[in-house]
Nucleic acid binder design. Sequence first.
DNA 1: ACGTATGTTTACTCACCGGTAGGATCGCTA
DNA 2: TAGCGATCCTACCGGTGAGTAAACATACGT
Lengths: 240, 240
Amino acid sequence: MTNRRSSTSAAGKTAVPASPWRASHERRRDRELKRDAVIRAAALEFNRKGYHNTSLDDIAARLEVTKPTVYYYVTSKEQLLFECFVAGVERIRSACREVRRLELPGRERLNAVLRQYGEAVASEFGWCMVRAEQDDLSPAMSRHVKALKSEIDQSIRRLIREGIADGSIHPCDPKMTAFALAGALNWIAHWYREDQSMSGAQIAEAFVAVFEAGLRPRADGAVEATPRRRSRRTAPALAR
Amino acid sequence: MTNRRSSTSAAGKTAVPASPWRASHERRRDRELKRDAVIRAAALEFNRKGYHNTSLDDIAARLEVTKPTVYYYVTSKEQLLFECFVAGVERIRSACREVRRLELPGRERLNAVLRQYGEAVASEFGWCMVRAEQDDLSPAMSRHVKALKSEIDQSIRRLIREGIADGSIHPCDPKMTAFALAGALNWIAHWYREDQSMSGAQIAEAFVAVFEAGLRPRADGAVEATPRRRSRRTAPALAR
DNA sequence: ACGTATGTTTACTCACCGGTAGGATCGCTA
DNA sequence: TAGCGATCCTACCGGTGAGTAAACATACGT
């Protein structure tokens, strides 16, 4: 849930059992916990019915409180969406940062990011992350969202360029390729609700395999880049 | 715009200049034209601001008429969205049908469909096509939408299977591959509004190239499957 | 014991928007 | 030119849902 204010100066384990600070610390901590619960509840509800079809009463009901209580932890419905978005996207951003330390060929680093990306999109915040549109947000927040998305896009493009440079990635147009990869992964949020026959990690892995191989048959007989577990089930759903 | 009722029995060119039927024919034709204009206006407006942030007054304003006039051609806002969806999707469906006649390897046939798919998503109806969610539609229409989407999905999967069978497509999981392809293409609708540096056809072509090649370098030196026209421009946008 | 922080409620306002009733207008036909 | 159907308007209704005011409750510090 990636919340700031996670450190309230000193820790609560200060031996003193009845420290005058403890209570206020615990309250503050409690508050954070509740706030996160509110955001999570919003994400779950947005998942089910979409942003516009979810009222704050719905979210409140899920938490078994009333609407004003929700407003006690959050200033607006818009902010709720924004926080959900951030929660989802933060995971990808950190993956982008982490990967820069790795001394691996570009493609491997890219794959690592894509895997995290896929899992994030399949998480409870995936829907919000993917559907948070400028239409639904104030200009200020919209800009913020756009900036975060753009940052990720640029990271992916850079990884692609680096991969091409070090020969681990087939020469291609970085921009279009990044769009294609991100799009495929983003779309997971649309069908994952209905078709949960695989875990987020499994989906991410399967997608990476698809991306790597491409459609055209390969000269070398390599069939699958990664050992695959077949999860055979009658699987519905589609483009949607 | 793919509208039924396009043939009103006889044609208007019956030599008789003042046929008593002509007027009514022309009126009927006129009506269809106007109806299509309404739907198109809705699509354009949904494009700009999203379904929920577009009021029927907005749509009416774009047409320089009033809301009841819109209702004269359409029974509900929901229907408007539905029609836009159908307009977009129909193009893909017909591509799927057409392609079955072609005596080509599976991959080529798949590519043909994907190209149409990409162009459809980049059209004015792309947004509606892609974003028409069950959340926004009545159960009945939602089912209808789902069925159409599913049909397309199944077509793509079949083409993939056939391609694998005839050796023109690298062995892979048809379901996941179809999801990845459709997702990448669907997502075009999200960024195409902001980044129109390429035409729909160009984007479709670029995507097909990406899909074909895959990320992993190829043993054969083939760099690009299709001769590419570079459209160099500073291009913004990203994952979104 | 008592004021004060914090947390939660009831009860409300207010704007917007989908949809409709009913009337005015225009062009065609007789 | 009276009449009729098609088209489009003004004016309205009703529901919904975001957001708020203010009371109420509980626990905390003193």
